[in-house]
């Protein structure tokens, strides 16, 4: 029987806000689901229900109170809850990628180098990496005159597409997608959809948030309703 790439069980997350007199904000409870290679699973539910929180727990931006987030590496499952920071960083380099709509700006590095850097990290030689980066930027309709400029000066949409280029340039087996298509125009949204389809074909697993119903229907192999994990307010 096929093993999932990601197995979440019994996961609980509460935020304690010390600056608000120690207010406890339970966000989710008893989260359990699995994701398999070659599928795109969409997290569904209204805003504020904890979809992004769930992605951040898996990526290690947030720490879980309880439960397990297990990633399959070969035949073994590695628990990411309370893992050594070095393990989390290693997993982010080699296994789990994260694509959000926001570019974390690094000053003075050109768009082309930012994207090529990812390919190089995945073991491609410099020339090959630049070539792959050019192909990717062209595919996402970033004008060639911008390639050698740092994205800090780009429009919001262009920055977002540079970020998507970086996210999809990696060869992670598991991708977390936090509204990668939000505020993209129809043409570029289609490009991203076809990139998601190619990742699926290549056997990657994706877990994502897509607010736009049309996009969601186009990419989702199945949906997980996060409302069912939410702690009643």
């Amino acid at each position: 029987m096929t093993q999932p790439i990601l197995r979440v069980s019994n996961l609980t997350k509460t935020f304690t806000m010390h600056l608000q007199n120690g207010l406890h904000m339970p966000v989710m409870n008893d989260v359990a689901f699995e994701v398999f290679n070659g599928e795109c699973v969409v997290l569904a539910g209204p805003s504020g229900v904890g979809k992004s929180t769930l992605l951040k727990l898996i990526y290690g931006n947030y720490s879980a109170d309880m439960g397990d987030i297990e990633l399959r590496v070969g035949d073994e499952f590695i628990n990411l809850v309370d893992a050594d920071p070095r393990l989390i960083l290693d997993i982010r380099r080699t296994k789990i990628g994260y694509v959000s709509q926001f570019l974390s700006a690094i000053p003075r590095v050109s768009a082309l180098d930012l994207v090529a850097e990812v390919a190089q990290n995945w073991g491609h030689e410099e020339a090959k990496s630049l070539e792959k980066a050019q192909t990717m930027l062209a595919r996402l309709n970033i004008p060639e005159r911008l390639w050698h400029l740092p994205p800090a000066t780009f429009s919001g949409g262009e920055q977002q597409r540079v970020n998507i280029a970086r996210g999809f340039m990696g060869e992670h087996e598991m991708l977390l997608l936090d509204e990668p298509t939000a505020s993209l125009d129809a043409i570029n949204r289609k490009v991203v959809l076809s990139m998601i389809e190619e990742k699926k074909q290549a056997g990657a697993a994706m877990l994502g948030i897509f607010h736009d119903a049309e996009t969601r229907n186009a990419v989702a192999d199945r949906e997980i309703d996060v409302t069912s994990f939410a702690v009643a307010a």
């Binding site: 935020f15 304690t16 806000m17 010390h18 600056l19 951040k56 290690g60 931006n61 947030y62 720490s63 920071p85 989390i88 960083l89």
Partner: peptide, 21 residues
């Protein structure tokens, strides 16, 4: 202490929350 983005995005101690906010 911990992974930088985890401590800064999900600080647990009151003082760290104050620093981050």
């Amino acid at each position: 202490q911990g992974l930088t983005d985890q401590v800064l995005d999900d600080p647990h101690q009151a003082y760290t929350q104050l620093l981050v906010s």
